[in-house]
Design a binder for these strands. Structure first.
Lengths: 244, 244
DNA sequence: CGGAGGATTGAGAATCTTCAATAAACGTGG
DNA sequence: CCACGTTTATTGAAGATTCTCAATCCTCCG
């Protein structure tokens, strides 16, 4: 029993762009069903060529890439509203995997109908492109972090980013606090650090009273100081984020 | 005196998707003119909000991001056929800059007419999205490199990638060799390494007879060995790359 | 209660950085 | 065509950040 787009709880959030009744009913017809994935399980395998792509309805996850010897890079974290699996829809093969970090629910779309969307709903097509460009922007930011920032700056940047995404997407109600189902290893793999050094860096941030991170919860205690450390600039996405 | 799309030399290359006469004449009307930029000069400034976006016609460049204290990350290298400045067209502001490494020529498009393209030419809109997704894929690959690969592997990966792009885009005729206008500092900023260490890494690759890099030219002498080092997998982009 | 996965800690080792100096390459004007 | 200034490449050495190893602790769960 999957949720109809017309009464999708996500769409009620102000962070997302509102659609007209007509658009909603098209999206509803576009939606094939829902996928529910347990925490820790893969949503999409790297290298796969799935006939579906998805919008995250509930829960958080991550995109990651692996090397043959087990080294892993987390490419981005995923929150409600994110479009996932577009690569296989457009390019034929996923070059990163997606896994659930908490239990997730995703709306399922058929890649075959993507073309129909482009032809019949240019506004939705524009939205897809908007999301792709935004994802590219995030990866650019991550690349700058991993390539040029020191460990403490990277972790600061990541935590701020994750909290912002969590707030915008409604993953958390609180402005400064969120449920944090990620492991330190996940942070490490996103920051390009070892888990040991990530742990020590987190300790340092705690000692400075910048953050709290325990019992599966993250709180940013000194947003200004942490933001300065990360040299973080709020991206200005004036209109609501599109939601497929 | 700018080139008409109908007789664009780039389009003749097999690597690019062919358009019909109708499509070509639309693209030609879409094209506002040409921009010529000298080597070393900026094409787009980070943080700018330009009314234009571009397709690279000739020459090579790079996308980069900077931090306040001067640290810089090269986010990607740019070759003919690449779409540049789409971020400002879609999202309102460039989060990376673009600079010319050799003299460049670019076709100029108006961001205002991007919407018209989406509405009236869904196939071209699809192409734009394809290009955005491909760019995202490249950044993911770069992120994996910088985050998890050792220096030698990173440089190997970069050189292979650059040569492949150069070949596909027609920047070079040769399969194993290219004109190489980039500085070691640029490689370093792309790999997330210091220029000193980049230099020493290049020496090591030379000593192993893997590459030749001098006199502004790069040659890959042992593609198999270098590819294995980089754990490089050829991306399969079966149909031609779209060219706006 | 026992086990498993994750967090934490300490210590030694490695990769990579920074500093600083020299050499080579390149472009420009005479 | 040469001298000269500027940029880029190269090299050595010392130092720092970050990594690996390995042990311990903790928490959660069946």
């Amino acid at each position: 029993m999957s949720v109809h787009c017309q009464k999708c709880p996500l769409r009620r959030r102000p962070a997302f762009k509102q659609l007209t009744e007509d658009e909603l009913s098209f999206m509803d017809s576009f939606k094939m069903g829902e996928l529910h994935v347990d925490a820790g399980a893969p949503v999409i395998l790297e290298g796969s060529n799935s006939p579906h792509f998805y919008t995250v309805l509930r829960g958080a996850g991550m995109r990651d890439k692996g090397l043959a010897d087990g080294r892993r890079q987390v490419v981005n974290f995923i929150f409600p509203g994110d479009l996932v699996g577009l690569q296989s829809g457009l390019l034929g093969e996923m070059k990163h995997g997606v896994e659930a970090v908490s239990d997730m629910a995703l709306c399922v779309f058929s890649r075959e109908r993507l073309w129909e969307l482009f032809r019949q709903h240019p506004e939705r097509a524009y939205d897809v492109t908007w999301l792709a460009a935004t994802e590219e922007r995030s990866l650019g930011e991550a690349l700058l972090s991993v390539g040029r920032r020191a460990a403490k700056e990277r972790i600061a940047q990541l935590l701020i980013y994750m909290l912002r995404r969590a707030v915008e997407s409604g993953f958390t109600k609180d402005e400064a606090r969120m449920r944090f189902p990620f492991r330190q290893q996940d942070l490490a793999d996103a920051a390009g650090l070892s888990s040991v050094h990530t742990n020590k860096t987190l300790q340092a941030l705690r000692r400075q009273g910048m953050i709290r991170l325990d019992a599966g919860e993250l709180e940013i205690l000194k947003p200004a100081a942490l933001g300065e450390l990360a040299e973080y600039s709020e991206p200005v996405d004036p209109p609501g984020r599109p939601l497929l």
